[in-house]
Design a protein around this nucleic acid. Structure first.
Lengths: 160, 160
DNA sequence: GCGCTTTCCATTGACGCCCATGAAATCCCA
DNA sequence: TGGGATTTCATGGGCGTCAATGGAAAGCGC
């Protein structure tokens, strides 16, 4: 598997370490830059994270802009300036800097959420709320799109 | 990693020395001209800095302009004329000349901000404000960019 | 000699590396 | 197919190393 899938909640220990879910580590190993590329989500109290693929994507975005343009510097500031390369120790744990923890409101536990080519880290309670909202949105959307078909309220195609 | 990433705030000591963040030093070491190439940002109260790659890029930019044109002279003056090569001592510290500190309003602390191929130095408070603006701008920008692609919620318009 | 700059050394706290433990999942074999 | 043995994972803690910072010592010009 080369995608981040499913959700896991792990504990932050007294030294500030958290285990990265084993399955995520496997994905990162194939896509690595020797660590986790991580930055605050722009519009959610969460952290976006991924491997080299994610970095390449961001680089492409920035490279597209004219050199020495205001936009380029601003984009680079918002992306690279707020990012961190999180190292993973040999036991598969990482440490979240204060700045990142604060953005996500993370204190004692972290929920890792797979989103395919990247993943997010959430404060567990907040993620629960976020998920509930997201699922409601999907239900609404489906009503509009798939008025003809029916899965009714049934099987959850998502995670839980 | 061969890019300047993340942000660090370090202190200027009584002798005017500041530690260059270790991760930046690593990048510079691979890209070195034995020091830091540094000049006042053109449109921000900050300092732009980098290694050989940055110098090459600036050269290319200048060379692109018509020979003997006013633009070329002006750009060359604005960039090269105000630049400095900052040395790094064996403990990884450098010293900012008065002229540069003044341009950025730097007094007791310096925030080093990675922008990928180069980095900037800011007075911490000013950077905070600048960052808030940059993030907002990127949010707006993304709405524009993402509007054309996949129906709204699709993953990866940019990030998030 | 005196002030200023540059090199070297010392401190402290953070982080990486190593090993240990216990729980859960997996495997294996009767 | 069931149950014990083995492996994988998440978590805890001790310890050495390195980075950031402060201060002392040594070179240089006036």
């Amino acid at each position: 598997m080369d995608q981040f899938v499913s959700a896991f909640t792990n504990k932050i220990d007294t030294k500030g370490r958290v285990s990265v879910p084993a399955s995520f580590r496997t994905v990162l190993a194939k896509d690595t830059l020797d660590g986790i590329y991580c930055y605050p989500s722009l519009d959610a109290p969460a952290l976006d994270a991924g491997g080299k693929r994610l970095v390449d994507k961001i680089n492409a975005l920035v490279e597209d802009l004219a050199p020495y343009s205001d936009e380029k510097d601003q984009l680079a500031t918002a992306l690279f300036g707020t990012s961190e390369i999180l190292s993973i120790d040999q036991d598969g744990r990482t440490m979240l800097p204060e700045r990142l923890r604060e953005h996500a409101g993370i204190t004692t536990h972290v929920t890792f959420v797979g989103l395919g080519e990247k993943f997010q880290m959430w404060e567990p309670k907040r993620f629960e709320a976020h998920l509930a909202g997201a699922r409601q949105k999907v239900r609404d959307l489906r009503k509009l799109l798939g008025a003809g078909r029916r899965g009714s309220g049934g099987p959850e195609g998502a995670r839980e």
